[in-house]
Write a protein that binds this DNA or RNA. Structure first.
Length: 978
RNA sequence: GCCCGGGUGGCGGAAUUGGUAGACGCAGCAGACUCAAAAUCUGCCGUUCGCAAGGAUGUGCUGGUUCGAUUCCAGUCCCGGGCACCA
């Protein structure tokens, strides 16, 4: 009987489906375990080999936990709102709901092919009205809540209204600022619009104004992704910044709690670091500098030194710095090109240059601005005054200062900050040294440990301790204050798009109000998917929608994914987003698996939503994910062919990589014009007529470019010429210039796996050829789950061979069942128990690649021992269940075992089979002294209980001393480190 | 540019985190079985010197700490991911 994986997998998948084998019940009596994958966006390209990597890992872990007796929730769903479906609709007119439905069906059948243990009755789809009903409902909770700074949590906004009605909002100290502070009487006298304005400033979901990438030609807003070098990716039209009304989530209020929460969860240090860097908490000071102009300079200087700044807001420049101690080293100020003061402070002489510079910056994306190596900037002609010594400081504009962070202005200290230093050097600004010998005149030194010099009243004080002194001084003089700052900004929560959740919000007389109908507010059908007028979304084209004064924006992709883990717990509930009983039982996600690309987006948003739901007492915990494992990205291994671009060519013409390299001598390759080359390509008759080139010899300046070739038409690096010609019509007559062996060699490069790069490998093909069990184990065998790697199918044979070999531990092609009831010997027991120990630890620590190796080693050893004993191979079979569910179920039932092998229980490791022998070994201590000792050895290391030296110096191994390792080194000598 | 990862044989990777580098698998070579092929099995397989025993060398690069470094530290190069409207 041989291993017929096709029949086995088909049978078992059918059985699982027919019996609802993976149906999960909310059986509150059992201990629970919740394993979650980041759900996929159902793209039109279908599932590729990168998707299942994390899913297989989580499936293995789920089955493992189930064998260990847990009630395991391991659901799957689809993040089905998104831009690609909308773009597809724009191009083809097909409704996104239709294409999404089709794509989901493809994804599901592909997933089922691999044999995952999902309970599909718990599936969620973010674009399903029954789901987004609750996304809208949670949005309204955010809209109707504010962050209370006293209790540091979200509270209903009605409480705030009550407070305003009774107490108003007056400052504890200082004078009230008009528009910000008011008494109860004033509040009660406010118009509805004025009240709405005030409340909007506190809502957790609020409306404001923000800049977007606007493409006039396409009439639409573009993602940063869709903007390349300042023009739209599609069509190459110019893109500019445009200010639009936008919804935001006030995530900044949760900055501290998002930081603190990281201490309570099991994420990798790298992930925690990324999140806390994103939040970017820093403490420092905001300092106001008086601005002088040439005319008023003298006056302001006196005022500044006297400690009373001009009171008008206009004549002050406020900066944020984390290093107030360096205040005497400020040689210039830099403000962002968007800074509101620019118009006012720019001198007549500089105006032209400033205008030119700002026009230049407008054409650049924020990303480009940050990545710029070139130093750019312009002087405004204005000066600020150092509040402590009255020095005039020139104010510059530069793109390296971003408007969104701090005050959009910095005080530049070139001797302490590298960017400031480069800027000063580039523009010839003199540098003040405030750190004495610590500054070498060549490069900035950001130390905090130097004693200050040239720093007035701070001279001689170590920088670290000067920080507080300066802050105190500026606070006393009323020209600034201590300030904690965050890099994180509030999350933009609206999109001018169609395929997303509609906001259940109406606008009456300019006031945003909760929509009064019953949720869900269903996304209406539209005629066409093109944008509405003035940068509004497609919903603005629907008269009935506009007539109801409904919000025309939709929610972004991350809305639905911010809470989906809760819906899986109670997916059919139409009374609540999730019953409290269900969310209390399933509780936090015990294990969450997904890529690092979501490190700062989805993960922070869903953590915030969870905190809000917790604050509002809707769930019982404020961190969604207990443990997070990041799977690496499976990258595509793209293949390219050199294509000749010369005009006059009548056919497509490609050249083998090795031929090109020889001709271009490597350093002068692709895409460049070469003065003169000679190509000989086999000399077919009539080739000249076909190609339009000069006979079989191609001479003269050839321009080449590289073109993607479908990776499925390439074996290793060698192109299958027939497949290539059949791949596309325009290539059917292509001329391929091969090497001497008649082979056409491709280039390879690692890229993201994507349809447009022709490097997608479909798991279906591999499953059809080798079976799901082989595919699952091979994906795991590729390497650590956490590591990114390019896909390579080479090597899958080895895993397939393993499964065939494993099968032969139970069945022989001729003899049939070979499992016997003989008692195992010690050697066989040792193989089994070492394997149990190894597989359990590998599974626990997510080292599935070494886990697969462990099975291979065990199988090899048992084959060598000719061991087919039931007491050995049966437990081994159970161990393999999580990795290869189909073959194990089949063998289990062929062995006559009742029920599913999933309920067999995990084998128990016994340590009595691991110890080998006790032997006498020569010993060196710290590489010097030598003696002999008795050591029992287990895997190369051993504990030493007694040690007697021959020279008599050390008589006994000293108990209670810090234990050191005994290591076996070459030549069987033992090195003892004490 | 900033933040986070990663560089080990021809290839994917292992080394349970400071202790015999290269487990396991792929590819390759040699052999067994076979009329033959497939399947299966056995042996070899970093580089280099050597008939061999054995020696030297070797974990991107340059240094450092240590009896001992793939592992720790500093610097540097290359590759991947993220950088706020892709998901």
């Amino acid at each position: 009987m041989e291993y017929d994986f096709r029949r086995i997998e088909k049978d078992w998948q059918k059985k699982w489906k027919d019996n609802d084998a993976y149906k999960v019940t909310n059986d509150f009596s059992k201990p629970k375990y919740y394993v979650l994958d980041m759900f996929p966006y159902p793209s039109g390209a279908g599932l590729h080999v990168g998707h299942p990597l994390g899913y297989i890992a989580s499936d293995i872990y789920s089955r493992y936990k189930r064998l260990k007796g847990f009630n395991v929730l391991h659901p799957m769903g689809f993040d089905s709102f998104g831009l690609p479906a909308e773009q597809y609709a724009l191009d083809t007119g097909q409704h996104p709901a239709e294409t999404t439905k089709k794509n989901i069906a493809t994804f599901k059948s592909q997933l089922d092919n691999i044999g995952f243990c999902y309970d599909w009755s718990r599936e969620v789809q973010t674009s399903d009205p029954n789901y987004y009903k609750w996304t809208q409902w949670i949005f309204l909770q955010l809209f109707n809540s504010y962050f209370c700074h006293t209790e540091k949590k979200a509270l209903p906004i009605s409480l705030l209204v009550k407070k305003y009605e009774i107490k108003g909002a007056m400052p504890k100290t200082g004078d009230p600022v008009p528009g910000k502070h008011f008494t109860a009487e004033q509040w009660n006298a406010y118009s509805e619009a004025e009240k709405a304005d005030v409340l909007m400033r506190r809502r957790l979901a609020y409306c404001g104004y923000g800049e977007v990438n606007w493409c006039e030609a396409l009439g639409t807003v573009l993602a940063n992704d869709e903007v390349v070098n300042g023009v739209s990716e599609r069509g190459g039209y110019p893109v500019v910044k445009k200010t639009l009304r936008q919804w935001y989530l006030r995530i900044t209020e949760y900055a501290d709690r998002l930081l603190d929460g990281l201490n309570t969860v099991d994420f990798s240090d790298a992930m925690k670091e990324m999140q806390s860097n994103w939040i970017g908490k820093s403490s420092g000071a905001e300092i106001d500098f008086a601005i002088s102009s040439r005319e008023s300079s003298a006056v302001n200087r006196e005022l500044s030194i006297a400690g009373s700044l001009p009171t008008t807001h206009d004549s002050r420049l406020s900066v944020y710095t984390t290093r107030p101690d360096t205040i005497f080293g400020v040689d210039f100020m830099v403000i962002a090109p968007e800074h509101e003061l620019i118009a006012q402070i720019t001198s007549a002489a500089q105006k032209q240059y400033v205008d030119e510079y700002i026009a230049y910056v407008k054409s650049r994306s924020e990303r480009e601005r940050m990545a710029e190596k070139k130093i750019t900037g312009v002087f405004t002609g204005a000066y600020a005054l150092n509040p402590f010594d009255g020095r005039e400081i020139p104010i510059w504009i530069s793109e390296y200062v971003l408007a969104g962070y701090g005050t959009g202005a910095i005080m530049a200290v070139p001797c302490g900050d590298e960017r400031d230093h480069k800027f000063a050097n580039h523009f010839g600004i003199p540098i003040t040294n405030i750190i004495g010998d610590e500054y070498n005149g060549e490069e900035a030194n950001p130390t905090k440990d130097a004693a200050l010099d040239n720093s007035g009243f701070l001279n001689g004080i170590v920088m670290k301790s000067a920080i507080d002194i300066v802050i105190k001084a500026i606070e006393e003089r009323g020209i600034g204050k201590r300030k904690v700052n965050y890099k994180m900004r509030d999350a933009a929560f609206s999109r001018q798009r169609y395929w997303g959740e509609p906001f259940p919000i109406t606008w009456k007389n300019g006031i945003a109000k909760e929509w009064e109908g019953e949720l869900p507010l269903v996304l209406p059908d539209v005629e066409k998917y093109s944008p509405g007028p003035d940068g509004q979304g497609p919903l603005a084209n629907i008269p009935e929608w506009v007539a109801q004064e409904l919000e025309t924006n939709t929610m972004p992709g991350y809305a639905g994914s911010s809470w989906y883990f809760l819906r899986y717990m109670d997916p059919q509930n139409d009374k609540e987003f999730c019953s409290r009983a269900a969310s209390d039982y399933w509780n936090q996600v015990d294990l969450y698996i997904g890529g690092t690309e979501h490190a700062v987006g989805h993960l922070l948003y869903s953590r915030m939503w969870t905190k809000v739901l917790y604050d509002l007492n809707l769930i019982g915990y404020d961190e969604p994910y207990k443990r997070l494992v990041n799977q690496g990205m499976i990258q595509g291994s793209s293949r390219f062919a050199y294509k000749i671009l010369n005009k006059g060519l009548k056919v497509e013409m490609f050249v083998s990589k090795d031929v090109v390299e020889r001709l271009f001598q490597k350093d002068d390759n692709e895409g460049r014009r070469v003065r003169s080359i000679v190509l000989k390509y086999g000399g077919q008759e009539g080739a000249d007529a076909q190609t339009g080139l000069n006979g079989v010899w191609v001479t003269y300046g050839i321009i080449m470019t590289k073109r993607h070739v479908d990776v499925n038409t390439v074996d290793g690096l060698e192109l299958n010429i027939e497949d290539f010609k059949n791949w596309r019509d325009e290539y059917s007559n292509a001329v391929l210039i091969t090497n001497e062996q008649g082979k056409f060699i491709c280039l390879d490069e690692v890229e993201k796996m994507s349809k447009s790069k022709y490097n997608v490998v479909n798991p279906d093909d591999l499953v059809a050829k080798y079976g799901a069990d082989t595919f699952r184990m091979y994906e795991m065998f590729l390497g650590p789950v956490e590591m990114s790697k390019p896909w390579d199918t080479k090597g899958i044979e080895g895993v397939h061979r393993f499964l065939k070999k494993f099968w032969r531990l139970f069945f022989d092609e001729i003899k049939g069942l070979v499992v016997n009831d003989d008692e195992p010997n010690a050697a066989e027991q040792k193989v089994l128990h070492n394997t149990i120990k190894r597989i359990e630890s590998d599974t626990e620590r997510f080292s599935f690649n070494t886990g697969v190796s462990g099975f291979m080693i065990a199988t090899n050893e048992l084959t060598d021992l000719k061991c087919h004993k039931r007491k050995i191979v049966e437990p081994l079979l159970v161990l393999l269940v999580p990795y290869a569910p189909h073959i194990t179920e089949e063998l289990w039932s062929l062995l006559g075992k009742p029920g599913s092998i999933l309920d067999a229980g995990y084998p128990v490791y016994e340590s009595n089979y691991t110890i080998e022998t006790t032997k006498e070994y020569p010993v060196s201590i710290n590489g010097k002294l030598r003696t002999t000792m008795n050591i029992s050895l287990d895997a190369g290391q051993a504990n030493v209980e007694s040690l007697v030296l021959q020279n008599g110096i050390v008589q006994k191994w000293m108990e209670g001393k810090p234990h050191k390792k005994i290591i076996f080194v070459k030549g069987k000598m033992v090195n003892v480190v004490v």
